[in-house]
Design a protein around this nucleic acid. Structure first.
Lengths: 138, 138
DNA sequence: TATTGTTATACTCTATAACTATA
DNA sequence: TATAGTTATAGAGTATAACAATA
């Protein structure tokens, strides 16, 4: 298992998995900004500080990526009515459309690589993957 | 699944999974050199050019990491008897001992995070992970 | 006093280009 | 001519430090 994990965690694997899904929108979303966009999609409206926690980077990094995604028209930043220091990040209709396309292409890539797996193995893997991911973020 | 995959592929996840396993040898093996060491353990004796393919980086990067690991006494570089241009990388006894320790600590971390999983789920996950990793490298 | 967000800066890691030596 | 390995250089991405504004 160690070998499989080392392979999966390699930087090149991330590029390899993201590249085909991001290709059509490569000019506005790259492999480092996509995690921010994905987190806003899942947890928004959310502040940049909380995004940083989910994405696992420093606040300054999340802030810069969010600014870039705002410039690209994929998300908006509105003052948090409950805290004037914070900005709440939220997807624009264009952002929602872009992420829908990315997810659908990513799913196609993944499903293709599992096409010849025995029945049930893929479902069990996805189940385990979700458990493992949850364990990491707790 | 997309969310779980984004989490797993995050740079911070790699650090989080490797950190406890590498801590005792942090002065000689870090998270970017470990994949090189692991590949030498699995495929050695092997040339730097082939290591680069397995690790998914450029030749120059693999070469530098290998040089550092040699300086640390974890691997040796001997001229390939079949090709005087190439150097064959191979673990030293110390290198084997170090990687044994890393793998055992990594296994402990992973097993701990799966401790409360239902019977069979962990095995199915590992099976799927290995299949998925193989699909990525082909 | 602590926290949010931002900017300037330095650091790490990587790829590209150029070179030598060998096939 | 092509490939293995190395070194110098530039680029991308990140964290640290310092700042203003608000809790």
């Amino acid at each position: 298992m160690e070998a499989a994990l080392v392979t999966l965690l390699a930087r090149s694997t991330r590029e390899q998995l993201y590249a085909p899904a991001l290709a059509p929108v490569a000019d506005i979303v790259d492999t480092v900004r996509y995690p921010v966009l994905s987190a806003v999609a899942r947890f928004g409206p959310i502040s940049a500080a909380d995004i940083a926690i989910h994405v696992g980077t420093d606040r300054t990094v999340a802030s810069r990526h969010a600014a870039a995604l705002e410039t690209a028209g994929l998300l908006t930043r509105d003052v948090d009515p409950a805290d004037a220091r914070a900005w709440l990040l939220q997807l624009t209709p264009r952002g929602r459309s872009v992420i829908r396309g990315i997810r659908s292409r990513m799913a196609a890539t993944i499903e293709a690589s599992m096409a010849d797996w025995p029945d049930g193995v893929a479902d069990a893997f996805v189940d385990g993957l979700e458990r493992f991911s949850r364990a990491l973020t707790e």
